[in-house]
Amino acid sequence: MKTSTNSYPIFIGDRLRFQLNQLIEKDYTSILIVSDEKVAELYVTDILGNFPEKKVYRSIIPAGEQSKSVDFFYQLHTDAIKFGLDRASLIIALGGGVVGDLAGFVAATYMRGIDFIQVPTTILAHDSSVGGKVAINHQLGKNLIGSFYPPAAVIYDTQTLKTLSEEEMRSGYAELVKEALIADEAFFNKLLKTDLRDLSNDQLTEHLTNGIKIKASIVGIDEKEAGIRKNLNLGHTLGHALEAEKGYGAITHGEAVAIGLLFSLHISERLFSRKLPYEPLLHWLKNNQYPLNIGELDEESLVNRMKTDKKALNATIQMVLLKQTGEVAIQELNDRDIRMYLKSFRRRLVGE
């Protein structure tokens, strides 16, 4: 992964968690492994086995989006201080997007910044682990407190994905669909032929590699989201608003993004008078059991949450839309139009 200001390696392969000591080039004074309760039970021992002669500590947080909070951010800083981490120490983020975002933000701010390495264990984290965005949530909005702080490396052991639940598979594949929609129509069409309950390891590795290549190519051009990197937010304006509205953890990030992708396609079709793959995507999402029953929408509340989105300017909502697969358009929409689109989207989604 190479940008104008940073460069770091991305490793993808089977059983890489047993090779960290070979893949990590620098010599660190101490190491703090940050993980959640579910992932730690499965893989912390494997990570520890890489460093038999190092001072290695662990901090385990509860699984779920609720842990991306200022309270756990502060707790991890407390742990780092108590363990005696210094500026030549390393944090290993072992887990999904929540762990990566939280541990990365701790690394960015502890003693004004120490190294961290992403060891993602979910499909969803293929997106969040690459690109250097780290953050925690505020109760009024997702990822509003954070920074751009690239990892020293991303080490992706595909074997860890075999323990994922169907819910986590769905969540991760929503981001792969997003990347395909903004950059690669052939990849998008290939994903629409994929049954998430019958994935081979080769298929999964190919899909992840394609998604990471798209993400890396965009971040390489626009590291700090001044231009083209905003394209990666397709589906996220409504997705983030739904997560906050329903309460973090009530719906997975990827499942919320899936609904947001449909919403973006719905608006795009009407705004640009183009036929876009709304119906094929809806069919694929239903076939793969994505939860699309969003119930009654509090449109006013959702509009207000969308206006706290980081892309909003002067309290005006900026939507990432598509003119066609692979051709992105950023559009400012007023509150009245957003409310109108939310109404028509809900009717279309429930088949009214």
Rank of each mutant, 00 (worst) to 15 (best):
E206W: 14
E167H: 11
E225S: 08
E185F: 05
S217V: 11
Q203Y: 11
I182S: 01
E166I: 03
A216S: 15
R197S: 15
N189M: 03
L192E: 05
E223L: 05
R170S: 11
E185C: 01
Q203T: 14
I212D: 15
S200D: 08
A183S: 06
I221D: 05
K224N: 14
D202E: 14
E223D: 07
A180K: 00
E168S: 15
A174M: 11
G172E: 04
N189S: 08
I218T: 08
D195H: 14
M169T: 14
L181C: 01
D195V: 12
E223C: 12
R229P: 02
K190P: 01
N201S: 10
E175P: 06
F188R: 00
E167C: 12
K215V: 07
N201V: 13
D202T: 12
T205I: 10
I214N: 09
G227Y: 07
T194R: 14
I221V: 08
E223I: 10
K190R: 09
Y173S: 04
F188C: 00
A216F: 13
T205S: 07
A180H: 02
T194S: 10
M169P: 09
E166L: 10
F188N: 00
L176G: 00
K224F: 14
E168Q: 15
A174I: 12
N210R: 13
L164G: 02
N210E: 14
K193R: 15
I182V: 13
K178C: 02
G211T: 04
S200M: 06
E168L: 15
E179V: 13
V219N: 05
K215A: 06
E185P: 01
V219F: 08
L191A: 02
D202F: 05
A183L: 03
S200A: 09
A183D: 01
S165T: 15
I228H: 01
H207R: 00
K178Q: 02
L204K: 13
G227M: 07
T209K: 09
I218S: 01
T209I: 09
A174C: 11
E223V: 12
I218P: 07
E179S: 11
H207S: 09
V177R: 00
I214P: 03
K230F: 04
D184F: 13
E179G: 03
E225N: 06
S217E: 15
K190W: 04
Y173E: 02
K178D: 08
A174Q: 10
A174D: 12
N189V: 04
L164R: 01
E167D: 13
G211F: 00
L204S: 02
A186D: 05
E206Q: 12
D184A: 10
S200P: 04
L199T: 13
N210M: 10
R170G: 13
K190L: 08
A226F: 09
S200Y: 12
L199A: 07
I212G: 12
A180L: 00
D195F: 11
T205F: 03
A186Y: 02
L196W: 14
I221R: 09
G227K: 08
L191P: 03
I182H: 03
V219R: 06
F188P: 00
V177E: 02
